[in-house]
Simulated scan of single mutants.
Amino acid sequence: MNQFSLYQDGIFRRLAEGSGGLDREEFFLEVIDQAAKAVASKCGFEIELHPTRIQEAQDLWIEDIQSLTLDKKIGGETVRACEYKQSSFLTYWLRRRLVVYSVSPKNPGDRDFDTLFKEYPSEYVALSIGLKLAAFHRFASAPNFHGDALAEISDKGDDMLFSLMHDALVLLHHKNVSPHALYLVFKALYTRMPPPSFLTTVR
């Protein structure tokens, strides 16, 4: 597996502490840079990220997650923030710090998602990374999960309905959407709800 893939066990710990002989800043930058450029390439663009803003996003994310952890001690035991919260707070700070500072066309198409990326590159990158992380942790524990499923997991992070993706990016760009609101979005997207009783098969 790629050392800097989003899709690996303990990814949130690695992003906060470092991995593979790299300190936390180096590892975080490499992972986010690789993921962001993959998102941009899929939409037909090349991007450059701002290293200082990436580090600021990491510091602010870690600070928030540590605060959540300290606030949730039960009987003296630490209750760590769930993957949806980790993903949402990371999305929030990547977007707030506007980590994308250079965007250039590589092979842009006229697809709706390509246009969205051109208009909202920082928001698109942040939301896509958060969705991919949430999807990975939602589905990776499934009994039939295997390596080939990673490509499909990656697509799950990109394949929101266009209208939903559009509205989410516009809100992220123009409004101060809280990480708690993002948490509810991620959890709602990946929480399976039973169908209404009238849709069940009558025997």
Rank of each mutant, 00 (worst) to 15 (best):
G75P: 08
G76P: 09
G76W: 11
T78E: 13
V79K: 09
A81F: 00
E83C: 04
Y84H: 10
K85H: 05
K85R: 12
S88W: 02
T91Q: 01
Y92F: 14
R96K: 11
L98E: 11
L98C: 09
V103D: 05
S104A: 15
S104W: 08
K106G: 07
N107D: 14
G109I: 13
D110E: 14
R111V: 14
F113S: 13
F113G: 02
F117D: 04
F117V: 07
E119W: 09
V125W: 01
V125A: 05
V125E: 05
L127P: 04
L127S: 05
I129G: 00
I129Q: 00
L131H: 02
L131R: 06
L133F: 11
L133I: 12
F136C: 03
F139E: 08
A140N: 14
A142I: 06
N144S: 15
N144P: 05
H146W: 08
G147Y: 10
G147K: 06
L150N: 08
E152W: 15
I153N: 05
D155T: 07
G157S: 01
D158C: 10
F162K: 00
F162W: 04
D167E: 10
A168Y: 07
K175I: 12
V177N: 00
V177H: 00
S178T: 09
P179Q: 04
F186W: 01
T191Q: 12
M193E: 14
P194E: 10
P195M: 07
S197I: 13
F198M: 01
